[in-house]
Amino acid sequence: MSNNQFYKVLSGFEVFPILGPQSKTFKFIELDLSLDSPKLQDVDISSSEDLGRHIWNLLQKNRAQAAYGGYLERRGIYQRSDYFNELDALKERNIHLGLDIWIEAHTPIYAPLEGTIHSFKNNTNYGDYGPTLILRHQIEGYKFYTLYGHLSLESLTEKEIGQRIERGQQIATLGTDEVNGDYPPHLHFQIIRDIQDCKGDYPGVSNQLNLEFYKSNCPDPMLLLDLV
């Protein structure tokens, strides 16, 4: 099934707001963290505190509750971690495959569609997801997955593989920088068509060599979000 066909299958289903019904009244602003963003010239992106101040100042300036962005964005933020770096520029993982929603820690996260828990894990590499949850969904016989990264540790408690999740059920809360890979609080949300035997983890950042595969396997997350 092509991505266009996949979009068509899901377009007929009403998704639950991932930040809850109250988020329908939120003002969202788009956040640019790309390598060539002029707004990051004076920001130390290797520091979660400095980047956090930049984000919250933008939110306050725009009287917004949350910021979003990042799908297929080429970022410099991963250069701080050996987990992403490669000597060969073509192999350096710096192209973001999910969509980030930047909002304060402990914000509740809800399931946009019904499904079951596929897997969960605390990914503790520096700059990694931290606590991560993956749901499995099936619509009209078509199976796919959604990944939720940078959660709180409490989000992984009392979870069971195969546990049924209802549309609109709270599934997690956002973590702080101490547990989420050392980032300002945010949700990494990603759609995955083929999970490739991964459990509790899936690449959220690609290099240039593998980008075409991941673009096909990880469609635009805005398909299941309503942020604008």
Rank of each mutant, 00 (worst) to 15 (best):
P38C: 11
P17W: 03
L72G: 09
D50G: 01
G20L: 10
F120L: 05
E154N: 10
L227N: 06
I165A: 00
T176R: 10
E140D: 15
N125K: 13
S81E: 06
D128P: 06
N122H: 10
G69S: 12
D197Q: 07
L51A: 04
L58G: 05
M1H: 15
R136P: 09
I29D: 06
N57R: 14
P112D: 05
S46E: 08
Q60A: 15
N210M: 09
K215H: 12
D42C: 14
I161Y: 13
G127P: 00
L187E: 00
K215W: 09
E140A: 08
F213L: 02
Y7E: 15
P203K: 13
L224C: 09
G200W: 03
A64I: 03
T132M: 11
S216L: 06
E154I: 03
I134H: 00
F84V: 11
Q41W: 06
L58K: 06
K61R: 14
I109M: 07
T107F: 03
Y145P: 01
P219H: 07
T176E: 14
I101F: 00
K24E: 04
G168F: 01
A66R: 01
N57H: 13
N217T: 05
G20R: 01
K143V: 15
F120P: 00
E178W: 09
A111T: 08
Y78K: 02
E14V: 07
F120N: 05
T157N: 13
H54T: 02
E154V: 08
S48G: 09
D100C: 03
Y68R: 10
L133A: 06
R164H: 02
M1T: 13
K159W: 07
S155K: 00
E154L: 05
L113R: 00
T124H: 07
S216T: 10
N180Y: 00
H54L: 06
C198D: 12
S34I: 09
D88H: 07
E14P: 01
L90M: 05
Y71W: 13
T146M: 04
S155Q: 03
L209S: 12
Y142W: 13
H118N: 04
K61G: 09
I171V: 10
L223T: 10
L209N: 09
G69M: 06
D182I: 12
Q170D: 04
G149I: 00
D82R: 12
T176V: 11
K61A: 15
T124R: 11
N85L: 15
K39P: 00
G98H: 00
R74K: 14
G168H: 03
N217R: 01
Y148Q: 05
F16C: 07
D36M: 11
I195K: 11
P185S: 04
L225R: 04
S34C: 14
R80F: 12
A111C: 12
F16Y: 10
E14I: 06
E14R: 06
R167T: 01
L211P: 12
G115Q: 08
G200M: 01
D82I: 15
D220I: 10
G12M: 11
E160H: 10
P131K: 07
A66T: 02
L224S: 00
Q169K: 07
R193K: 14
